[in-house]
Computed example of a mutant assay.
Amino acid sequence: MKVGFYTSQREYTEKQKEFDTAIHDVLKNGIATLGQQVKDFEKAVEEFTGAKHAIGVASGTDALVLSSDILGFKDVKEVITSPFTFLASASCIARHGGKPVFVDIDPDTICIDPNKIEEKITDNTVGILPIHLFSQMADMDKIMDIASRHDLKVLEDAAEAFGMRWQGAGDSMKHSGTIGDFGVFSFFPTKTLGGYGDGGMIITNDDNLAELARQYRVHGASKKYHYDNLGYNSRLDTMQAAILLVKIKYIKEAISKREKIASLYKERLSGCEHIRFPKIKGNQSPVYYAFNILTDRRDELNAFLKENEIGTSIYYPMPLHLQKCFSYLGYKKGDFPVAERISKEILALPIYPELTLDEVNYVCDKILEFFKK
């Protein structure tokens, strides 16, 4: 049996009529940047997440870049974040001349360890950039408490966290991205809510920040050809918005199917002494954008699965503090031992709503077969 890590064809086949109609409607009505479908999709995201403002941009990376610029994460100012993440979570700071300051991750959750943040705060620190990774949000209670006490801005990288929610002490459940000053989503095709190309979104409950984000995505214009700021050309494509409008109707169902697949993986693999799972911490609702296992025989297992035509991915094989592009920061091997260890143990298995239970069982069978050898 061949099991791909991800495929979009099954979803398209299931909902072909709806996708075709959405695409043809854009074509029939005339191509327009920030067209009606973008406005409708922004409204749908506001309703689903509870955010006061949703601003569509060209990618999750652009969402981080624009938000970092607006929040002042630049000009040698320091922003505390995790080294165990995708490049964009830190490059958005460095791109503006800011300084990413890394702290190690929690070995259980693989998210930033909030207990290590405060010791890295200096007079030059202006913000914290937590990343909600794989299946859960970072500890936003501790992060927001630290930010409040030190007057720091918080940019939530929720690129992988659409649908995740956190409940603070004595508070209602809040969607990822709505707790800090800004939150960002990516709609890259593999995401829980993914388009058929690049797309991203900035969310906030702050009216002034929202207005700046809307200006920054169109070159900094407050109205056409009137530029209050030096911004960017970064708009969510109308065609992608039309596709995402179809998909967001089924987002709760998609999240539920991912949870069932994750539960089956845990049921089948929990008895294997060579495998560990990240632990969910805090009062939150996880979403299984990715399903990761941890094993000290990761590379051997990965090779075996590929030989058996099972797709996998490694998020992430090298922490950011060891990447060449960040060598100027002066970090060295051993500075963040948890992130370095996890990078050698972590392996993502196939998980998407259209994956069949037979395919999940086949993946589990092969993993258990490997460890019996």
Rank of each mutant, 00 (worst) to 15 (best):
M1A: 07
T7G: 09
Q9F: 12
Q9M: 11
R10E: 15
E11H: 05
E18Q: 09
D20I: 14
I23E: 11
L27G: 10
K28P: 04
A32G: 01
T33D: 02
Q37E: 15
V38D: 01
D40R: 09
K43W: 04
V45Y: 00
E46Q: 15
F48D: 14
K52A: 11
A54Q: 06
A54H: 00
A54C: 08
G56E: 06
D62Q: 13
S67G: 11
S68I: 05
L71N: 00
D75C: 07
F84N: 00
L87A: 06
S91A: 09
R95S: 13
H96P: 02
H96M: 10
G97D: 08
P100D: 12
F102C: 09
F102P: 06
V103I: 11
D104N: 11
P107K: 10
P107C: 06
D108A: 14
I110L: 14
E119C: 13
I121D: 12
I121S: 13
T122G: 12
D123R: 08
N124Q: 13
T125C: 04
G127Y: 05
I128D: 02
H132G: 00
S135I: 04
S135P: 03
Q136K: 12
D141R: 08
K142I: 08
K142R: 14
I143L: 15
S148G: 13
H150V: 02
L152W: 07
E156R: 08
A158E: 01
A159M: 08
M164S: 00
K174R: 14
K174H: 09
S176P: 00
G177H: 07
G180P: 00
G180F: 00
F182V: 03
V184L: 02
V184I: 11
F185D: 00
F187A: 01
P189H: 03
P189K: 04
T190G: 09
K191G: 01
K191P: 02
G194D: 09
G195S: 13
D206I: 07
L209D: 01
A213L: 05
A213S: 10
R217C: 10
V218P: 02
H219S: 09
H219D: 06
G220V: 01
A221N: 09
N229F: 13
Y232G: 02
R235C: 13
A242Q: 12
A242Y: 14
L245A: 08
K247T: 02
I248R: 03
Y250I: 03
K252M: 09
K252L: 12
S256R: 11
A262F: 08
Y265F: 12
E267S: 14
L269R: 01
S270H: 10
E273I: 06
E273G: 12
H274S: 10
R276F: 05
K281V: 03
N283C: 13
Q284I: 13
S285F: 06
Y289L: 11
F291H: 07
D296F: 12
R297C: 10
R298Q: 15
D299N: 12
D299I: 07
E307W: 06
E307R: 05
N308M: 04
I310F: 05
I310G: 01
T312V: 13
S313K: 14
P317R: 14
Q323N: 14
Q323I: 10
L329G: 06
G330H: 04
Y331L: 03
G334S: 00
A339P: 12
R341Q: 09
I342Q: 03
S343R: 10
S343Y: 09
K344S: 11
E345D: 10
E345V: 06
L349R: 00
Y352G: 00
P353A: 11
E354T: 15
L357M: 15
K372C: 08
K372P: 10
